[in-house]
Simulated assay, not measured.
Amino acid sequence: MSRIVVCGESLVDLVLDARGRDSDARGLAPLQPAPGGGPFNAAIALGRLGSSVSFFSRVSTDHFGDALMASLGDAGVDTALVQRDPAPTSLALATIGADGSAAYSFYVEGTADRRVTDPGSLPESVGALAFGTLSLVLEPGASVYAQMMAEHHDRGRLVMLDPNIRSAVIDDADGYRRRFTEWVRTVDVVKVSDDDAEWLAQGPHGSHPQDWLDAGVAAVISTRGPDGIAVSTASGTVAVPAPPVDAVDTIGAGDTTVGALLHWLDRHDALGVDAVRRLTDDDWRAAAAFAARAAAITVSRAGADPPWAGELTSD
């Protein structure tokens, strides 16, 4: 079993349900704090599913940071690579709309996770790394993660990227899109939502999934909400539907998809640069179906709460 290293921020989601549930006499609903952050959620998903996974980030020594570390430990995620810092934990206000979708605003100035430093060499057992979300935007940490993507891709390790676009924290949209076209040259699997793909296609430096495949990406995973998941490779596109579910909210659904896909690849000896390129359309269909089932469980309950291995069968 190869070790997977998930790289990027952890934060605390302050969840506000705008649907009026539990509101007080003034119509104000209480804020519910919950562990979060795209890479953090993906690492939790991998740990709960039983993969050998490490989290690389810089986590505050404040109360929230201690709670984040405890959540990682509870999920079986190795934290030996985590750096600690007295700077505060990043916060995200996640507002749940009428359809269960979440809108975000962020409080990230001077926070611990953006101060991450180069971890140096990684253990030989590491077969794959995953990156994404705010960690690719907020400097100086963003440059550290970008360098890691290039370095470990050159070393022959599988690299997965989930940009998970949060436009509210991207001051220079064209600059981000330009950097994204550079990143995909060092990436094997890209996961995007339909909204991500639409945003990345805009402007003078916009690009599309076919451009990423042409640049050397082996597979583009597109999440389409209730319409399921599609996988595009050099041989074409396959798609699977989303399982029917009573949605509570969408927090963590895409992050669960990342974790579940990496878990499936690991369990099917495909956690490698060459191996992932040898997967057939049927293989990708099975991987996407497994990820869709995992994401559906997350959507069925409040907050980013990925499934445990016993909650779904592994195909």
Rank of each mutant, 00 (worst) to 15 (best):
V126L: 08
E182D: 12
D118R: 00
H152G: 07
L136I: 09
N164R: 01
L161G: 03
D99W: 13
S101T: 11
D194Y: 01
E198F: 13
L134E: 01
R185F: 11
M160Y: 05
V169I: 07
A102G: 06
D194R: 07
G141N: 05
R178I: 11
E198Q: 13
P163V: 05
G100V: 12
G156L: 06
M160C: 14
H208W: 15
T79Q: 12
R155H: 09
A94K: 08
Q83C: 06
V116L: 01
S135F: 04
Y176R: 01
G203H: 06
R157P: 13
G127N: 10
T181G: 07
L129R: 07
T79Y: 14
R157E: 10
R157D: 08
G206R: 04
T89I: 07
E139P: 12
S90E: 12
W199F: 14
A98P: 09
G141F: 03
S207E: 08
A173T: 14
A80S: 15
A98D: 10
A128E: 06
A112N: 01
M148V: 09
R157S: 01
V126R: 02
A87D: 00
Q147M: 04
L122S: 08
S167R: 15
A197P: 05
E139Y: 09
W183S: 00
A142D: 03
P119K: 02
T186N: 05
S90L: 10
L91K: 10
T111D: 00
A102P: 06
P86R: 14
T111G: 01
A150H: 13
R179K: 12
L91N: 06
Q202I: 14
A80N: 12
D172N: 05
H208L: 15
A146L: 04
S90F: 05
G97T: 12
A150F: 11
G110E: 02
P140R: 00
A197S: 09
D154W: 08
A173W: 05
L158C: 06
L200K: 03
G100M: 15
T117G: 09
T117I: 10
E198W: 14
A168D: 12
V137L: 06
E109F: 00
R179S: 13
R114G: 04
Q83R: 07
G206I: 04
R177F: 12
S135C: 00
H153G: 11
L93F: 15
L158M: 09
V82P: 06
G156K: 02
L122W: 00
L161P: 11
A168E: 13
D194G: 04
D113L: 00
T181W: 03
D118A: 00
G132T: 08
D171S: 10
W199Q: 14
M160S: 09
K191G: 07
V116M: 04
A94D: 14
S193C: 02
D99N: 15
T79R: 13
S105K: 09
R84V: 09
V189Q: 04
S125H: 14
V184E: 03
M149F: 04
L93V: 15
T79L: 12
K191Y: 05
L200Q: 06
L81D: 07
P86L: 11
S143G: 08
G206E: 05
S105R: 15
Y145S: 01
Q147F: 03
D85W: 07
H205P: 09
L136W: 04
D162E: 02
H208S: 14
E151N: 10
V190A: 00
P119G: 03
V169C: 01
Q202Y: 12
L158A: 06
V184W: 02
P140A: 04
